[in-house]
Write a protein that binds this DNA or RNA. Sequence first.
DNA 1: TTCAATTTTTAGTCTTGTCTAATAATTAAA
DNA 2: TTTAATTATTAGACAAGACTAAAAATTGAA
Lengths: 239, 239
Amino acid sequence: MSVENYLKAILYLHEEGKEQVSTTELAGRVQATPASTSAMLRKLGERAWVEHRPYRGVRLTEEGHRIAMDILRRHRLWECFLVDHLGFDWDEVHEIAEELEHVDSRDLTNRLDAFLGFPKLDPHGDAIPGPNGRFRSVAARTLLSEAPKGLELVVVGVVDGRDSFLRHLGVLGISLGTRMTLQTRHAFDGSVEVTYSEGGEAQMLTPSVTTRLWVDQSNPEPIIVFPDLDESETPESNK
Amino acid sequence: MSVENYLKAILYLHEEGKEQVSTTELAGRVQATPASTSAMLRKLGERAWVEHRPYRGVRLTEEGHRIAMDILRRHRLWECFLVDHLGFDWDEVHEIAEELEHVDSRDLTNRLDAFLGFPKLDPHGDAIPGPNGRFRSVAARTLLSEAPKGLELVVVGVVDGRDSFLRHLGVLGISLGTRMTLQTRHAFDGSVEVTYSEGGEAQMLTPSVTTRLWVDQSNPEPIIVFPDLDESETPESNK
DNA sequence: TTCAATTTTTAGTCTTGTCTAATAATTAAA
DNA sequence: TTTAATTATTAGACAAGACTAAAAATTGAA
Ligand SMILES: [Mn+2]
Ligand SMILES: [Mn+2]
Ligand SMILES: [Mn+2]
Ligand SMILES: [Mn+2]
């Protein structure tokens, strides 16, 4: 919980343009003393969620960025729910979302996302990260029918929101956030075969499906490389 | 958070008929050691949320009962939301609700309640406390093990909300609202045979099942609602 | 370049909640 | 009514996260 709030605060500061986040500024954001913040940064560094150069500042690692984006996603989705369905005003929701964001269930988050209609913006007009941990951008997504083979893809949207189609997706085991890799494309009729990252047998999808599904690359190229960080922790949370 | 889980666990045990709750039994419910539980009980006693007589057991005070009922209210409202609006199955929601229940905002709770249409029962058929901290309705219900033969019955709740039991019900083709008629009762082992109104073959049910299912006569009498109960009856049931 | 102001980290405590091991009280058996 | 088994509490530690006060590093002004 505390760890999550710190990560999100660092993300906010990055989004505001700060490459390096100072201890004091971060302390201000999380309402803690610089001393407490310093201790937390050491811990986050040990877990490889931030790169902390003492006295110099801190920056999210790729993994830390991923985690922070997921918290931001939950925060903004809940804000949508509170405003659009419970009738809160946009200035009343932040504090409550600040709590709800810490309920960490991938399934819950994705279903809430679907329930809300896959919103791209929260009630404050801020972009909502998608299930792949990146902001939803029209440019970044591709129809499954035109996606490349061999790369892990993640389903980021549907072209057709009719109930009949969504129910059919359910039968196929596909929902927003489903990860799959395109294995084969049959030129004859445009059908494709995919394998789900979660396992199971190869699945054939008809063009009626592949032309109605938005996908994106599941694992973007690493943007930042930290040569001297020691290896890997347990991937974070999320049942 | 921890404090809330202890209070709710004590409430559950009260609802199961235990006047005094023992340290060991409570420890089992909250998945902690008796030593930790003992320490927590001292603290809860200091805050006057329980009456703790060392070596004798513990009981919620009026204030503690009020707080616990409010947590139970949030838990069950969220379960309704997860099932009715996010499409979860009734055996998937408990763990998530276990987290959501701790988001403590009166405004949020009451708006959620309204959004859901002021439900009286959660997806497992358990009564939902109202904003006044008392149950809203008492449905006329009987254990299937004690129900009369030959009448059409409808499943209105489960005594045991554990996922394992709910999944077993799924295998048996039973869910909330399932209609059946008790055909035979075998005195030897307490097993019964029922037929489903929807059709299919007669189904044998073991006492482990029949003593955990609340049923009501299928004839559509309206649920009796007592908006302003003076006495806090102790509605039975649940995990 | 030097030194004082500012920023950051460290040292030492506290609180909450957890654990294991040891002790004490209660209950059940002989 | 003793004793043995069970149950409950206390003692002592630990981890997370927070604080204040003190020390160390960096920065900026003279
Ligand atoms: Mn938060
Ligand atoms: Mn917002
Ligand atoms: Mn809980
Ligand atoms: Mn329930």
